[in-house]
């Protein structure tokens, strides 16, 4: 168990900046989600914490100890990869046992710990199989079991659900959530799926183009987006954004007139969520219908 501190963590490849200086404190036992579109630097951030990528600048502290110059194996982390990274020549049992074996944990403990991890993710009947003989969801659970078998200080999960079908994703998501509740291990979880982020996270870090856009609880990010990027990225459907001008507390744009706002006069962007607004006889927006959609929750 440990907290993680990132101090001006930076990544550059030549002239290209992969991650602009990032400061973040992740509390002990927290479930933190790095959320953003592909290429936003979230995976790079995680890989630097894991030690699979060198930081170009800044410090990474795990449990108060600077780990920048440590090998991945010496950082006491466990990672679940997008494509699971299971060892194809080993059985499920051997896969789960591998971290114990290479770390020289006494043989006598292995069986108990492997079985406990396997039970946690409901894999006990597949222990003799090779990964090739498993379904995607089962492979994913092997990767999870391999991560929890060793009680590391930190879990890192890199889009662990993205190779699963929609139905399995929901149940595995619940499983991960439950696992975190049980183990209370500090977890960093990378995803581009905002629903995953909203359902799993204690706190979400929204990233775009190598830069942190907002850090906050799912509710804060949903209710008070820090900028138009976050507003347009979070929520399904995303927040409506309109260009217009504000004058004396009245927002005006084509087909739109909303009074009662507070803000400086001049050009502004106004946003609201579709589910907060409703169709009425008269209203602030008056325009012909462009399209109709039937949504389950609409």
């Amino acid at each position: 168990m440990a907290d993680i501190q990132l101090k001006s963590l930076t990544k550059r490849w030549g002239a290209f900046v992969g991650l602009k200086p990032m400061d973040l404190h992740i509390g002990d036992g927290e479930f933190l989600v790095l959320l953003g579109p592909s290429g936003c630097g979230k995976t790079t951030t995680m890989r630097m914490i894991a030690g699979l990528e060198d930081a170009s600048g800044g410090d990474i502290l795990i449990g108060g100890k600077r780990v920048n110059d440590l090998e991945p194996k010496d950082r006491d982390i466990a990672m679940v990869f997008q494509s699971y990274g299971l060892y194809p020549t080993m059985t499920v049992y051997e896969n789960i046992r591998f971290p114990l074996k290479v770390r020289g944990i006494p043989e006598a403990e292995h069986h108990d710990r492997v079985m406990r991890a396997a039970r946690t993710v409901e894999l006990t009947e597949f222990l003799d199989r090779k990964p090739a003989a498993l379904s995607g969801g089962q492979r994913q659970r092997v990767a999870l079991a391999r991560a929890i078998v060793r009680k590391p200080k930190v879990f890192l999960m890199d889009e662990p659900l993205s190779n699963l079908d929609a139905k399995l994703r929901v149940s595995t998501r619940a499983q991960i959530k439950n696992l975190h509740h049980e183990l209370r291990t500090t977890t960093i979880y990378v995803t581009h799926d905002q629903i995953e982020a909203m359902t799993l996270a204690d706190r979400v870090v929204v990233m775009s183009r190598g830069e942190v856009q907002q850090v906050g609880t799912p509710l804060e990010i949903y209710d008070r987006p820090a900028n138009t990027f976050v507003a347009g990225f979070i929520g399904s459907p995303a927040m409506n954004l309109m260009q217009g001008t504000l004058k004396g507390g009245v927002f005006e744009a084509e087909h739109v007139r909303i009074p009662g706002l507070a803000g400086p006069d001049g050009p502004v962007t106004l946003g609201f969520r579709a589910e907060d607004a409703s169709i009425a006889a008269t209203g602030e927006i008056a325009a012909p219908i462009y399209a109709m959609e039937l949504l389950g929750d609409a």
Partner: peptide
Amino acid sequence: IGQPIAAHVPARICHLF
């Protein structure tokens, strides 16, 4: 499609950027 409608968007649900 094409039918004119109105929507109620009170100031309290709006975000300004």
